[in-house]
């Protein structure tokens, strides 16, 4: 009887530890990393056209997806939290592609053509890309 109780206690302990470990790993899983994702290739012009045509259709295609946007750098800046931002030119006068770079990324010079890969969070005035890396 005593042996059985001991065994039951042991099994219970193992189970609790296992469940605890799994919960800990799920809870503390790392953030998504855009470097490891392939990314949908699109030009800044096309991305803005798609969003100007239909927000909802474009969102189904791009929202929360990793996308690699190529285009000409119109401007660069530093935001309120010290993150670097890059605006990619489009054919539209009203909208561009506004990218916020990850820390440590090289900032391309205005006028250069680059490809920036990041996560699309939809369109406000501009199409917004965040957590981005500079590919070339």
């Amino acid at each position: 009887m005593k042996k059985k109780t001991k065994l039951a206690l042991f099994i219970a302990c193992v189970c609790i530890t296992a469940v605890g470990t799994v919960i800990w790993f799920v809870w503390n899983k790392p953030h998504r990393s855009v470097e490891k994702e392939k990314g949908i290739k699109v030009t800044a012009e096309q991305l803005v056209i798609d969003y100007e045509l239909s927000d909802s259709v474009a969102n189904s295609k791009y929202l929360d997806k990793a996308i690699a946007v190529s285009g000409k750098v119109a401007a660069t800046a530093v935001n309120q939290d010290g993150q670097n931002t890059v605006t990619l030119q489009s054919a539209s006068l009203l909208s561009s592609v506004y990218c916020t770079l990850k820390k440590g990324q090289p900032v391309p010079a205005a006028g250069n053509t680059v490809s920036i890969k990041g996560i699309c969070t939809g369109k406000l005035s501009d199409v917004v890309i965040i957590d981005a890396i500079v590919e070339q």
Binding site: D64, T121, G122, S125, D126
Partner: peptide, 22 residues
């Protein structure tokens, strides 16, 4: 969220937009 899009006009109009996924 660091990508808040806002316009403020001196006539008192104010607009804020943000993407929830941001």
């Amino acid at each position: 969220n660091n990508q808040v899009d806002s316009k403020l006009a001196t006539n008192g109009q104010l607009v804020f937009m943000l993407g929830i996924k941001g």
